[in-house]
Measured scan of single mutants.
Amino acid sequence: NQASVVANQLIPINVALTLVMMRSEVVTPVGIPAEDIPRLVSMQVNRAVPLGTTLMPDMVKGYA
């Protein structure tokens, strides 16, 4: 099963993503693939993302 990107903490809106904010985990439904974590660094989410939430492509500005 493919690992997805999961919030490692509350990720506020309009804050640049850092490695420490994200972890990889096998979850259902599948979200952004874990291998895209380096690409996500410095991008921003378009809504607050609670701890443990799977990041979906539509949550990250400029990802999709």
Rank of each mutant, 00 (worst) to 15 (best):
R23M: 05
I11M: 06
L19K: 12
Q44W: 12
N8T: 15
L17H: 00
P12E: 12
A64D: 12
A64L: 12
T28A: 09
I37R: 09
V60N: 02
S24W: 08
K61M: 12
A3H: 10
E35I: 10
A64F: 05
M56I: 07
I32L: 05
P33V: 11
T53P: 03
Q2M: 14
L17I: 11
V26R: 04
A34Y: 07
A16G: 14
V26E: 15
T54I: 07
G62L: 07
E35C: 12
V15E: 15
P50N: 09
L17G: 01
V30R: 04
T28W: 06
I37Q: 05
M43G: 04
P57I: 05
R39Q: 09
S4R: 02
Q9K: 12
D36H: 15
N1Q: 15
S42N: 11
A7T: 09
M43Y: 09
Q44V: 15
V27P: 01
A16S: 11
V5G: 02
I11C: 03
T18S: 14
N14G: 12
R23K: 13
V26C: 08
P33C: 06
L55Y: 01
M22P: 00
M56G: 05
S42W: 09
R47G: 07
V27S: 05
M22C: 03
Q44M: 14
Q9V: 15
L55A: 02
I11Q: 01
V60W: 02
P29H: 05
A3K: 07
V49N: 02
P57L: 04
S4C: 06
I11T: 00
Q9G: 05
L19E: 14
R39H: 08
V45E: 02
R39T: 10
V27M: 07
V20K: 10
P29K: 05
A7E: 02
D58V: 10
V26K: 05
T18L: 06
V20S: 14
V26G: 04
I37F: 03
T54P: 06
A7V: 07
T28K: 05
I13S: 12
N46F: 10
S42I: 03
E35V: 06
A34G: 08
M59Q: 05
A64I: 14
G31V: 02
V15I: 15
A16R: 10
L40N: 00
S4E: 01
V5Y: 00
G31M: 02
P12Y: 04
P38H: 13
V6C: 05
D58A: 09
K61S: 14
N8P: 02
Q9P: 00
D36W: 07
L51W: 13
M21F: 04
T54W: 03
T54G: 02
N1E: 15
R39N: 14
M56R: 11
V6A: 01
E25H: 07
G62R: 05
T54M: 03
T28L: 07
L55M: 15
P38M: 09
S42Q: 12
Q9D: 10
S24C: 07
V6K: 03
A16M: 15
P50L: 09
I37A: 09
L55S: 01
L19S: 12
I37W: 03
A64Q: 15
M43E: 04
D36S: 09
T54L: 04
V15A: 13
G52Q: 03
N14W: 09
Q2S: 14
G62Q: 12
A7R: 01
N46Y: 08
M22V: 07
P33W: 08
K61Y: 08
R47D: 07
L51I: 15
V30F: 11
V27K: 06
M21L: 04
L17P: 02
A64N: 12
N8M: 10
Y63C: 04
V20L: 11
A48G: 07
G62I: 04
Q2E: 15
E25M: 08
S4F: 02
D36T: 08
S24T: 14
S24P: 11
A3D: 08
I13M: 13
T18P: 00
L55T: 00
P29S: 04
P12Q: 10
A7M: 04
A48T: 15
T28E: 15
G52F: 04
L17T: 00
V6N: 02
V49L: 13
V6Y: 01
A64T: 14
K61A: 12
V41F: 05
N14R: 07
S4Q: 01
D36F: 13
A34V: 12
N14P: 00
P12F: 03
M56C: 05
E25A: 13
N1S: 15
T54Q: 02
V26Y: 13
T54D: 02
Q44T: 15
G52C: 04
D58H: 12
V27T: 13
N14Y: 06
Q9T: 14
K61T: 15
M43A: 15
Q2W: 10
I13L: 12
V49C: 06
P38A: 11
V41R: 06
V49D: 01
V20Q: 13
A16E: 14
V15K: 11
V60C: 03
V15P: 00
P12T: 06
N1R: 04
I37N: 00
R23T: 10
L55V: 09
T53C: 08
N8A: 13
G31A: 03
A48N: 10
I11P: 00
A3W: 07
R23A: 10
M22F: 09
I13D: 12
M59K: 00
S42C: 15
M22D: 01
V27D: 01
I32V: 08
I32R: 00
I11R: 01
G52M: 04
M22N: 00
